[in-house]
Amino acid sequence: MNKQVIVYTTNDCIECTMVKQVLTMEGIPFEVRDVSTSAVNQREVEKYGFLGVPVTVVGQRAVKGFTNELKELIDFVRSME
């Protein structure tokens, strides 16, 4: 399974910054995809059923926002190591 972590974001999103900081502190590498500069990135977010950001994706699992679900996603990534 692909364990690539993708964070869909915008530059002025405080929650997005918090998600990226947590992933960095946890040592989880991730790719940033800005939805404000790419319609393709926005469509990718929408295919997961979300309109806003942050959305963090691993494989087919997607989490919206800075919530307990993000911690579960981090645990999931760690279990794949």
Rank of each mutant, 00 (worst) to 15 (best):
M1R: 11
M1Y: 13
M1K: 14
M1V: 15
N2H: 09
Q4E: 07
V5R: 01
I6R: 02
I6M: 01
V7H: 02
Y8M: 00
Y8T: 01
T10R: 04
N11F: 03
N11R: 12
N11H: 01
N11Q: 03
C13S: 14
I14W: 10
I14P: 09
I14R: 00
C16V: 08
C16D: 08
C16Y: 00
C16H: 06
T17Q: 15
T17S: 15
T17Y: 07
T17C: 14
T17W: 12
M18I: 13
V19D: 08
K20N: 09
K20M: 10
V22S: 10
T24A: 13
M25F: 07
E26V: 00
G27A: 09
G27H: 06
G27K: 05
I28G: 11
I28T: 00
I28R: 11
I28D: 15
P29F: 10
P29Y: 14
F30G: 14
E31S: 11
V32T: 07
V32R: 05
V32H: 10
V32Q: 06
R33C: 05
D34A: 15
D34C: 01
D34Q: 02
V35Y: 11
V35I: 07
V35M: 02
S36E: 12
S36C: 05
S36Q: 14
T37R: 06
S38A: 03
S38K: 09
S38F: 08
A39Q: 07
V40I: 14
N41E: 13
N41L: 12
Q42H: 02
Q42P: 03
Q42M: 14
E44Y: 00
E44D: 04
K47M: 15
K47T: 10
K47N: 15
Y48S: 12
F50Y: 15
F50M: 01
L51T: 10
P54N: 07
P54D: 05
V55H: 12
V55K: 10
V57T: 05
V58Q: 12
G59Y: 02
G59S: 01
G59H: 01
G59V: 08
Q60N: 12
Q60M: 12
V63N: 01
F66C: 03
F66A: 13
T67G: 01
T67Y: 15
T67H: 00
N68C: 07
E69I: 05
E72M: 12
L73F: 09
L73S: 02
L73N: 02
I74W: 12
F76V: 09
V77N: 04
R78E: 08
R78Y: 11
R78D: 14
